[in-house]
Amino acid sequence: MGFKLLSKLLVYLTASIMAIASPLAFSVDSSGEYPTVSEIPVGEVRLYQIADGVWSHIATQSFDGAVYPSNGLIVRDGDELLLIDTAWGAKNTAALLAEIEKQIGLPVTRAVSTHFHDDRVGGVDVLRAAGVATYASPSTRRLAEVEGNEIPTHSLEGLSSSGDAVRFGPVELFYPGAAHSTDNLIVYVPSASVLYGGCAIYELSRTSAGNVADADLAEWPTSIERIQQHYPEAQFVIPGHGLPGGLDLLKHTTNVVKAHTNRSVVE
């Protein structure tokens, strides 16, 4: 069995187990497998329904001669939608809004960016022009300005110390501490036991640490421990890039980060 097929099978099995364990909360999309990078042309966006009122959005972007996937989250909030992270750029984010209108038909009224990198804030200006209120932590807003990236308009308070959590509509926002970046936030959907790890969490097929220019490698494993301790009931975990899975993604990420750190020390 090929690795790609095995990865998709694991996603399907995880979703099936969740649907059985929580039949009222989960209505997993039966329309197909989780979209992969090879299936999404740059400039297009796919939506994948995880649970009743919960979707991931998947886009792709060219970077350094390669094409990478990027995940975000959409959560229903009454007759409105909360968006977590842009679709990595203005063109993708405009396509995301169009796809949401086509498939869901509810307005996106608020959006949260989970850290300051372009795959999370690139497209904020498109959201703002569409009347979406954009939010991020003060740290993310400051770092985005320093980096020359787009800056969300509103500040999220109460997320300055490791372990801080605040309720934001249908989700809980959690600051686990520094990891992929010093400002990275985690998003949890309690009604569906869905954990969105953003770039602080890796997919299972990833074996290298990737972009760690703004990471705190020493603190990252401790931050992941905080996530595990705060959300032990999480059933569906979405990484910032690639295929979702279960809580095993947290341990896998820790292993990859520690291996990278150990290699760096040896070198």
Rank of each mutant, 00 (worst) to 15 (best):
V126K: 15
E145S: 13
P239A: 05
G242C: 04
N255K: 15
G158T: 12
T14Y: 12
A87M: 00
P232V: 09
V212C: 05
N211G: 11
S31I: 06
S62Y: 14
S191W: 08
F116N: 04
A234L: 15
A215C: 05
S161I: 15
Y175S: 02
P35D: 11
N184V: 01
S161L: 14
F116A: 15
I40E: 12
V121Q: 00
E233G: 12
V265T: 10
Y34S: 12
I186M: 10
H230D: 12
Q49A: 12
A133V: 12
L173R: 01
V112D: 04
V124E: 04
I186D: 00
V75I: 08
A87V: 01
Q229W: 13
S160Y: 12
D77P: 02
T109Y: 08
S70H: 07
H57I: 00
R263K: 11
S191P: 05
Q228L: 15
G2S: 10
L249H: 01
Y48A: 11
R263N: 15
T140I: 03
G148K: 08
A94K: 11
V108H: 02
D119W: 00
L10T: 09
T254S: 11
H260S: 10
T254L: 09
E80C: 14
E39L: 07
G2M: 10
E172D: 09
L250D: 02
E267R: 10
G122M: 15
Y231G: 00
Y135Q: 01
K4C: 15
I100P: 00
P239V: 03
L13M: 15
Q235Y: 14
R141F: 04
P190C: 04
K4L: 04
E267F: 11
L82W: 10
K4H: 08
G163R: 09
L10D: 06
S113W: 04
P107Q: 08
V11S: 09
L250G: 01
I104L: 12
T14W: 04
S38R: 08
I224K: 02
A21W: 09
T86I: 04
S30T: 08
T109D: 14
S27F: 14
D183Y: 03
F3R: 05
H180K: 00
G2H: 10
Y196R: 01
D214P: 08
E33C: 10
A133I: 11
L9K: 07
G2V: 08
R167G: 06
H241L: 01
Y188I: 05
L127C: 00
V187T: 06
L96Q: 03
L156W: 02
G123W: 03
E33N: 11
A234M: 13
T253N: 01
H154D: 12
F63M: 07
L83I: 14
V108K: 02
W55F: 15
H252K: 04
P107E: 13
S208I: 15
E147F: 13
Y188K: 00
A144M: 06
P138H: 07
S27G: 08
L106G: 10
E219C: 04
Y48M: 07
S56T: 12
P190T: 05
V75H: 04
L47V: 10
E80M: 09
S223Q: 03
S139F: 02
R141G: 02
G32M: 11
E225Q: 07
L217F: 15
F116G: 10
T222M: 08
G210M: 10
I74W: 02
T36K: 09
